[in-house]
Design a protein around this nucleic acid. Structure first.
Length: 554
RNA sequence: GCACCGGUAGCUCAGCGGAUUAGAGCAUCUGUCUUCGGAACAGAGGGUCGUAGGUUCGAAUCCUUCCCGGUGUACCA
């Protein structure tokens, strides 16, 4: 339709314009455009006159039942019933067709548990992934984290201390459950971390252990007792990631451990140093920032000869490029890494010019716990992902009678609570609001869906698709027709929160309709059932985009 | 210091490739309804969109100043 308008403008005034349609308030029509005002200046004409001329052309189209000019020159358009019904079946655009995308997010460190930030980023990243796929992309989901480094040394020290020595066999006594194993490893980490702070001997020990662990990789040592403990618990961590992703019902990711990316990055860095793209400074290898572009100078190899995160990140980029030959790479991290990543991207693009413009860094804010008073008793300072899930699950269990539906509701509540914020700012996670049955929440929409399904289940009438419209249907059908526009926006901007707003507005519109228009027992029963079915399908599809399951009954 | 992100109703947030009366949820208040799952519907109050300027016929939206909050600023990740 926007193209149609552009063509009319082209024909009448012989100018190229990008016409945008908006959705005005219902009193004005189904669509509106302000092209006339935009053109007024360049054409040197009164916007109202332009609007009238364009409107006259539009009136020739039988899809438009009413075209009026209002205010300073808006063109308001009302669709015919047939055209309005057609909007409901319009398919969203697929802007990423033929694009090979790598999307990196989640990124938990091995030997640690996922915290609330990971939970948010993983669920959000999973939804954004789905948007890329809906947009037609060929997608690979990747993740990146440390399986070597000081935090691992602290942990391994704690494991050894907990086991009472280098006894790999004793690991057999630990739980078989991946999540419980992760919990156990995490406790060992705490033990090691506090020893590192308080105990000089332990600190030296751990620093030494750090080098030893790198050695396991360099020498491919799987045999010594401590090496066995390392490799076993490392695998436990990887198993835990998969178990956790399954727990929250998201897709698994291809994981790049630092032990693999660091050597790749180091090779690149050494080559670039030789090529003069990196400099030596105070014994370290650095990428010199550009003041005029506000790029910091950053260290890639420390004066002790160790690769930094920068080098490891270069390593992942190279591995992802070589393995998947992406057209575009997206990366989601906390927004504290924004400036840092600009430098890494700048360096990467300088080292490998083909990467220029192919990488996008998305950043998320931190999860804050809303009403501290109510949360403190249950969550307090806890930041572990599982604790948030448990707290939500406990609330949901009290509200949902059918035990088999409780997990879907709890996960839906959390995913929705994360998805409804625009990416970037900190997000406010309020437990009560998240599981609230009123207002803009996941459970509210799941219930709205189940309720619609129950109406359909209750009737014996046969129905297909709506063929005509009555006055009372228009508002609802118009909203149903906005679905593909909402999805378009969400896919194009990779911004799921728009779909949340849309679905909530749709549910409200339906409630209004349903309040006034009896479905079952009405002489328009079959017709109205067809609208209810469309509504339920759209709710379900919209929630599916967010990774939320919509049960037929609750 | 410099840079980045944010500052919209009491609270939590949408809107920000300018445009017809600035929206929603929660909270508060008032109605409807013996409810096809009422987890509903109708309505009210509440905002000089951080500040001061500028561009424009028109600015929450674009530009500039300043203020407030958060983050980052070479050998952590």
């Amino acid at each position: 339709m926007e193209q149609q308008l552009a063509q009319i403008v082209q024909k009448v005034y012989d100018v190229q314009t990008d016409v945008r349609l908006t959705r005005p308030e219902p009193q004005f029509g189904d669509y509106a455009t302000n092209v006339a005002m935009q053109l007024a200046k360049s054409l040197g004409k009164n916007p109202r006159d332009i609007a009238e001329e364009v409107a006259e052309k539009l009136r020739e189209n039988e899809d438009f039942i009413e075209v009026s000019v209002a205010g300073p020159g808006f063109i308001n358009i009302r669709l015919s019933d047939a055209a309005l019904i057609r909007t409901v079946y319009t398919r969203p655009a697929r802007p990423y067709v033929d694009q090979n995308i790598v999307f990196e997010y989640s990124c938990p460190n091995a030997f640690k548990e996922l915290h609330t930030g990971h939970l948010y980023q993983t669920m959000y990243g999973d939804t954004v992934s789905r948007l890329m796929l809906l947009g037609g992309a060929k997608l690979t989901r990747t993740s990146f984290g440390g399986d070597v480094g000081l935090h691992v040394a602290k942990c391994l020290w704690g494991v050894r201390d907990t086991l009472g020595g280098e006894y790999p066999d004793k690991l057999g006594e630990i739980s078989e459950d991946a999540l419980e194993r992760a919990r156990w490893i995490s406790q060992c980490y705490v033990r090691g971390a506090s020893a590192y702070e308080d105990d000089e001997v332990a600190k030296d020990d751990i620093d030494e252990l750090n080098k030893t662990i790198y050695g396991y990789h360099d020498a491919d040592n799987h045999d010594s007792p401590l090496a066995q403990i390392y490799w076993t618990t490392r695998q436990w961590s990887f198993d835990y990631f998969d178990a956790f992703y399954e727990l929250i019902d998201v897709e698994k990711l291809r994981y790049y451990p630092e032990s693999e990316t660091a050597p790749v990055g180091l090779d690149v860095v050494k080559d670039q140093l030789a090529a003069g793209k990196l400099k030596e400074s105070d014994g370290a290898v650095v990428f010199e920032g550009d003041e005029s572009k506000h790029l910091h100078t950053r260290v890639f190899i420390t004066s002790k000869g160790l690769p930094t995160y920068e080098t490891k990140d270069i390593g992942v980029i190279w591995m992802e490029k070589d393995e998947y030959n992406f057209d575009h790479r997206y990366l989601l991290t906390g927004n504290d890494q924004r400036e840092y990543m600009r430098v890494v991207f700048a360096a990467a693009e300088e080292f490998r010019p083909e990467l220029a413009g192919t990488m996008t860094h998305l950043t998320n804010g931190t999860v804050r716990f809303g009403d501290g008073k109510k949360m403190s008793s249950r969550l307090g300072n806890v930041t572990r992902a599982v604790d948030v899930l448990d707290a939500v699950q406990t609330k949901v269990d009290e509200l949902v009678a059918d035990a088999s539906k409780r997990r879907a509701v709890a996960l839906g509540a959390v995913k929705y609570a994360f998805a409804k914020y625009r990416l970037g700012g900190d997000i406010n996670f309020d437990l009560d609001e998240t599981v609230s049955l009123q207002g803009n929440s996941g459970p509210y929409l799941q219930y709205a869906h189940a309720r619609a399904r129950s109406i359909l289940a209750k009737s014996d009438e046969q129905f297909t698709l709506p063929r005509e419209l009555f006055d009372e249907d228009r508002a609802l059908v118009r909203k149903l027709g906005e679905y593909h526009e909402a999805v378009d926006t969400v896919i194009r901007e990779l911004a799921p929160h728009h779909i949340c707003n849309y679905l909530f507005e749709l549910a409200q519109e339906f409630n209004r309709y349903y309040e006034k228009n009896k479905v079952i027992g009405s002489d328009k029963e079959a017709h109205r059932l067809s609208l209810v079915a469309l509504y339920a399908d759209i709710l379900q599809a919209g929630l599916a985009i967010l990774g939320i399951d919509a049960p037929e009954q609750l």
